[in-house]
């Protein structure tokens, strides 16, 4: 029997990666982890490639038991992590013995938690990615009592008696605070909104329950488009803040269809999309205007954080003489 995780409580969870890149010309959305920073950090903390498949857990409690010793990391929204009944820190690598139960519960303030295992997890792949595409009906959603195949285990690396976590990599953890501040730049159609465009930055918006990985609907004081007329479908980027005729904003996320016909008032920045990927239905959002240059600088600063973290993690794993995990997913399943 190959090494695996037994999933006890799946909640709302699925195997995820950073997305299906390079397929938008065929009409496929990129999809992938909605909070890319947290997903990347989880993989870096266990020495995986940043794009390795991992588990994305949305809001509901999750628990599982590995069949072998593993090293895992949990990032994303604040939650309580226990291993064999003992509290363990989030945003740090955590050693788990074969047969110990891992619980992730009480997810709060944000919507999504990421669970990475050193050596990664198995998932069917479509066009180079395991990212679920709900419209295509593709992806590995987890269910109670599922077995999820995992990469090779690791030797036990915490203290056999005291069980102190041996790792302190010190990730700068992003803030999880409501109302959320989401950075945006001007969109290509901002001129169509005239003076009403600035309402976007004065108003507070409430995220509606009809929100998901495709897009978030938000109620509030919506800017009004002055221009009228037929819009031909055209490519819209992930992060597009669209203004349909009604009383809601529509903010597109990674599962968005690649073409649309509504005017694009603003575009959420790369770092803003990570935060937006954590916003829960019912929470409040404020938009903050950034220049393109400021947004690029913020994104690059986040990548620098990842690079530095990868360096520290690699030093640690070298010191422990842990074998490097394979770069690809284990025994990848076919769809």
């Amino acid at each position: 029997m190959a090494d695996h995780l037994v999933i006890h409580r799946a909640g709302l969870s699925a195997v995820q990666d950073l997305g299906r890149f390079g397929r938008s010309r065929f009409g496929l959305p990129v999809n992938g982890a909605l909070d890319q920073f947290s997903a990347r950090v989880a993989n870096v903390l266990v020495g995986n490639d940043e794009s390795a498949p991992l588990v994305e857990i949305t809001m509901l409690d999750f628990s599982c038991t590995p069949s072998t010793d593993v090293l895992l990391a949990v990032t994303g929204a604040p939650a309580e992590i226990t291993v064999g009944g003992i509290r363990r820190p989030q945003w740090e690598p955590t050693a788990v013995r074969a047969g110990e139960t891992v619980t992730i519960g009480g997810i709060r303030l944000g919507a999504r938690v990421y669970l990475a295992l050193r050596g990664s997890v198995a998932a069917p792949s479509l066009l180079g990615s395991c990212a679920p595409d709900t419209i295509l009906g593709f992806g590995r959603s987890l269910r109670d009592d599922d077995e999820l195949a995992i990469g090779s285990g690791v030797p036990p690396i915490d203290h056999p008696v005291l069980r102190h976590p041996v790792f302190r990599l010190g990730v700068p953890v992003p803030g999880f605070r409501e109302p959320w501040t989401i950075d945006v730049t001007d969109g290509p159609d901002v001129a169509e909104f005239g003076a009403s465009a600035t309402r976007l930055f004065d108003a507070e918006y409430t995220v509606s329950p009809q929100s998901n990985h495709i897009g978030l609907r938000m109620r509030g004081d919506v800017p009004q488009r002055e221009a009228r007329g037929e819009v031909l479908s055209r490519g819209v980027p992930v992060g597009a803040v669209e203004v349909p005729a009604g009383e809601e904003l529509l903010v597109l996320h990674r599962g968005r269809g690649v073409t649309a016909g509504y005017p694009v008032l603003a575009v959420v920045t790369a770092t803003g999309l990570c935060a937006l990927g954590q916003v829960r239905p019912g929470q409040r959002v404020r938009f903050r205007k950034r220049s393109v240059a400021e947004a690029v600088t913020a994104h690059r600063a986040q990548r620098d954080v990842l690079r530095a973290l990868r360096q520290r993690a690699s030093t640690l794993f070298d010191a422990l003489r842990l074998p490097m995990p394979t770069t690809s997913a284990p025994a990848s399943e076919t769809p």
Binding site: A270, A295, V296, H299
Partner: peptide, 9 residues
């Protein structure tokens, strides 16, 4: 034209 920090149109 620029279309946010990660796209042009």
């Amino acid at each position: 034209v620029d279309c946010g920090d990660s796209a042009v149109v």
